[in-house]
Design a protein around this nucleic acid. Sequence first.
DNA 1: TGCAATCTATCTATCGATAGACAGACAAGG
DNA 2: CCTTGTCTGTCTATCGATAGATAGATTGCA
Lengths: 190, 190
Amino acid sequence: MARTKTDMREAVMTAARTTVQSHGYNALSFRELAKEVGIKSASVHYHFPTKGDLGAALARRYTEEGAAYLAELLATSEDATWCMDKYTEIFRSALANDNRMCLCGIMSAELDDLPVEVRAEVDKFAAMNVGWLAQVLSRARSSVSEQDLQEHAMAIFSAIEGAQLVARGCRDIGIYDRTIRAYRATGLIP
Amino acid sequence: MARTKTDMREAVMTAARTTVQSHGYNALSFRELAKEVGIKSASVHYHFPTKGDLGAALARRYTEEGAAYLAELLATSEDATWCMDKYTEIFRSALANDNRMCLCGIMSAELDDLPVEVRAEVDKFAAMNVGWLAQVLSRARSSVSEQDLQEHAMAIFSAIEGAQLVARGCRDIGIYDRTIRAYRATGLIP
DNA sequence: TGCAATCTATCTATCGATAGACAGACAAGG
DNA sequence: CCTTGTCTGTCTATCGATAGATAGATTGCA
């Protein structure tokens, strides 16, 4: 066996993730995916019985990796502005990388076509991000209420997702950069 | 003939618009569409030869109607805050109406699968919105440069699209309301 | 009669999913 | 050392559904 089961699962997920970030969940095809990793579509079904299984695994992994990276940021610096810089950079790099989108952002747009198990993972991604942002904000604004903190965090998350969506739509990463700058200028982002 | 050619075109476009706002461009099917308006799919092709034609017509109409409504707002009141209230209300009503999205917002997420003629219309929608927002802003902030105005307008547009996307993903219109409130609190929205 | 609109019927392509065969790895028993 | 049986991963082949699109017949109003 050239590759272990785990290797194959990883290869499939990596290819799938790229496809979803570029074309969405609906564009994800077992046949195309199989071709990319060099096996047949039936074999993909062996690793991920249904498309919903694959989508949910994808989103779960995406959230886990994101959470790990964000935790690292929090542990590295106490500076809220630095953390936010790094955060906006994550979404920027998706655009810079072949005009891709946040996996869960693009999935949110396809919400009604998603199997329930995928939806659940999309929800968790949003909650994870908002939770992290609230932690960062609490360092910069210690006096506000917990509710205001949550709302502000949600506003930042939404604004950044929107900046990515619109910039992607215009195929112009400069729009993302200028929009983030405007968010900073108003104080939405510390 | 129960309906004129124009009537039929309108009926198809209305049904198509609802479908796209709920499920995206990819989910738009000539057969389903035909069933909804009571004709056969071949007849839909008579009115809109290709799917790209239909998509482009949809986006163009969407932009035209939006522009007309926004022009009316500008003519009705000089108050920037009132105009912005009405503006955010547009995006809110899409969510309130069966968790739908802005037609061009959801299409932006599907960008890579769109025929070029549809993309062009999506671009025009963004430009139209940013132009209007810049006009409103210029009433409230007369001293800033034209470039700052454009960037601020783009930031507002992006932030609102994002709020809609995220709230839709969470199936919770309350998230939209709280996020808009937070945008106001920071001064992003006048 | 002639044109406009819709129809029936069909094509090719692709989708997710499944059944069943097969090859190689590996452990157990002789 | 060799054989036997089991398990794993991939394969071929195919299913039913659906997609966009087209050709050509048909209907009905002016």
